[in-house]
Simulated scan of single mutants.
Amino acid sequence: MTTNTGGGGLVPEGPWLIVGLGNPGPQYAGNRHNVGFLVADLLAERMGGRFKAHRSRAEVCEGRVGTPGVSSRRVVLAKPMSFMNVSGGPVTALRDFFKVPVARMVVVHDELDIGYGALRLKLGGGDNGHNGLKSITKSLGPDYHRVRFGVGRPPGRMAVADFVLRDFSGAERKELDYFVDRAADSVESLIADGLERAQSTYNS
């Protein structure tokens, strides 16, 4: 994809930055809080790429999504290797390194206030108590795209922190691959088709 410079020349369009949120380390890999990592991993697999350590304190995979040719888009997938509540540092470093405007950033994260597996795509807004979003917004402002992946509310009196830092239940895992696949589809649609079309298809 190219854009006109106004002087008759064409320059390559800059990349999108797609950030999957989670906590680093094998002990967190299956947690509800790490669903952003799961979606990023699937997108990397679809691109035929592999994550590599980056000086921004993140793992990064570069490639293209969408139909090969005019409609494909260059993307940088990233998984911050800081803990969730300080994600803003690595994300800001990635933004600066790859020169990505906030309007071309997508953050994929777990969301308590929608049912398990449901998706909500949006641009801007508050952090709803999510520490990863809170850190990113503090660093970059709120005007980035979000793909909110529903994990539901904790049962009974279970603390929110305990709930999101536990693995998906056995019943949830039976459908997890399908929901992660759908979330990855929604990211690709957001980039290729725009927010409104992606919302009409995936906001459930």
Rank of each mutant, 00 (worst) to 15 (best):
E13A: 15
A29W: 10
K134M: 06
G141L: 05
S82H: 11
R104L: 05
G48E: 14
S186P: 04
H33N: 14
E59L: 15
G69T: 00
G132H: 05
G132W: 03
D127R: 01
L140Y: 10
F179P: 01
R46I: 09
R74V: 07
V147G: 02
R104P: 07
A44M: 10
M158G: 01
L17M: 14
V180Q: 02
F168Y: 04
P12F: 07
R166G: 09
F149I: 03
V60F: 08
R146G: 03
V160M: 06
L77V: 10
Q27C: 11
V11H: 11
A103M: 07
V108A: 15
A103K: 13
I191S: 00
G132Q: 04
Y28R: 07
S82I: 12
G156Y: 02
M47S: 08
V60P: 04
V35S: 13
L195N: 01
G126A: 08
G6M: 10
A40T: 11
N34K: 10
V102R: 08
P15S: 11
F51A: 08
H109D: 06
P12C: 10
V164Y: 08
G8A: 12
G194A: 04
D143S: 11
A183L: 01
G36W: 12
D143V: 06
P24K: 09
G117M: 04
T67K: 05
E172C: 04
L42E: 14
L190D: 00
M1T: 13
E111Y: 03
L38M: 15
R120I: 10
S56Y: 12
S204A: 07
K99M: 10
R166P: 02
H130A: 04
F168G: 03
T5F: 12
S135H: 05
P154H: 04
F168C: 03
G63E: 09
N131H: 11
R104A: 09
